Amino acid sequence: MNNIQSILSIAKRTLETEGKAVLNLMGQLDDQFAHAVQHILDSQGRVVVSGVGKSAIIASKIVATLNSTGTPAIFMHAADAIHGDLGTIQKDDVVVCLSKSGNTPEIKALLPLIKVGKNKLIGITGNMDSILAKQADFVLNTFVEKEACPNNLAPTTSTSAQMAMGDALAICLLELRGFSSADFAKYHPGGSLGKKLYLRVADIVVNNQKPQVDINSNVKEVIVEISEKMLGVTAVMENDKVVGVVTDGDIRRMLSKYDNINGLTAKDIMTSNPKSVDVDTLAVKALKMLQEKEISQLLAFDNGSYVGVVHLHNLINEGIL
């Protein structure tokens, strides 16, 4: 038990240290940050993000975030840049260099080469007296008092600060560009995230059968239709219009209510005014409707015409839930 408490204590201390460092970044933001964002926004090129060691890993993450939120970006390892990869940087590109100390040998070697190309340089560093800070056109201060590592050696708090600053850059650019959820979907077509942004009811309904019975259909016909179409529901039609639904629950309630079901029809056991959704509705919105109404199915309509059923299980299978 003591060992468990000790482990939790270390974890909490680590999170507290890193959390405070990230919050402290707000006090370190100044006009340099705003000018850096504006310059990237006005640039006709890409954002080339570079670093070495742990900073290189954070640089890769920042590149991924920028690309996914509408700002073209590419990663360039600082060590590789001076051995042939400097050609990555094109005429209108903005270069972002990450370095806690701002004085690593690779960064020192890279800076004059960037200047030769006349590309604007944004430095993200925790050392405002470093070569990187002094030579950068814009400096973003990621100073941290200490690493979460008890020896104050392993990059932990400092890399969290770098990542948070990169996120701040990306989100500012996202909002200034008016980058919408529809735009986001273009860059995230796969997985559950993408599906939440683009999958519509029409994409699901087309794979389901279309259960329906006439308002005067007898109970056996209703039960067979529900069973065969395997959606736990059937629409009830009159003159080609939906007038109600019969669900598995309606069948159970009928059996509890009536001793003799001979002569009963769909009209006698249906639920009027069924819950419905338009085929153009996002699947994630349909899921919200099901959850709010505490039901399992919605009838789907296309321009007022009944086209099928979307079931909760469909949304689960698609990874929406």
Score class of each variant (00 low, 15 high):
17 T>F: 00
28 Q>N: 14
199 L>H: 04
285 K>Q: 02
53 G>A: 06
145 E>V: 04
300 A>K: 09
139 V>R: 08
266 A>Y: 05
96 V>Q: 03
11 A>F: 05
99 S>R: 13
184 F>L: 10
249 G>T: 08
230 M>P: 00
194 G>D: 03
232 G>P: 01
119 N>H: 04
151 N>L: 15
177 R>P: 02
293 K>V: 02
125 T>M: 15
166 G>L: 06
176 L>M: 13
125 T>D: 15
38 Q>R: 08
269 I>W: 02
301 F>R: 05
123 G>C: 12
292 E>I: 02
59 A>Y: 05
107 I>T: 11
155 P>H: 08
85 D>T: 13
73 A>D: 11
106 E>S: 09
138 F>G: 06
79 A>M: 11
140 L>W: 14
276 S>C: 11
211 P>D: 01
159 T>W: 02
30 D>C: 09
210 K>Q: 13
49 V>Q: 00
40 I>E: 07
100 K>N: 15
72 P>Q: 06
132 L>R: 14
75 F>A: 07
46 R>N: 10
145 E>I: 04
168 A>E: 05
111 L>F: 05
116 V>D: 09
237 M>P: 10
13 R>E: 15
167 D>V: 02
269 I>S: 05
113 L>G: 00
75 F>R: 01
22 V>K: 05
186 K>I: 02
6 S>Y: 05
76 M>P: 02
239 N>G: 14
4 I>Q: 11
171 I>H: 07
98 L>A: 04
174 L>Y: 04
34 A>C: 01
213 V>Q: 05
173 L>D: 12
138 F>I: 00
309 V>F: 08
69 T>H: 01
89 I>N: 00
285 K>S: 06
51 G>Y: 09
286 A>G: 05
195 K>G: 03
129 D>W: 00
197 L>A: 07
209 Q>V: 00
249 G>M: 08
87 G>L: 03
128 M>T: 15
130 S>K: 13
269 I>H: 05
226 I>C: 00
114 I>H: 08
194 G>T: 04
131 I>D: 15
307 V>P: 07
274 P>C: 06
54 K>C: 04
20 K>R: 15
172 C>S: 15
25 L>F: 01
232 G>W: 03
106 E>I: 04
256 S>V: 02
307 V>Q: 03
15 L>V: 13
224 V>Q: 08
289 M>D: 10
305 S>T: 12
193 L>D: 03
110 L>D: 12
294 E>P: 00
166 G>E: 03
116 V>Y: 06
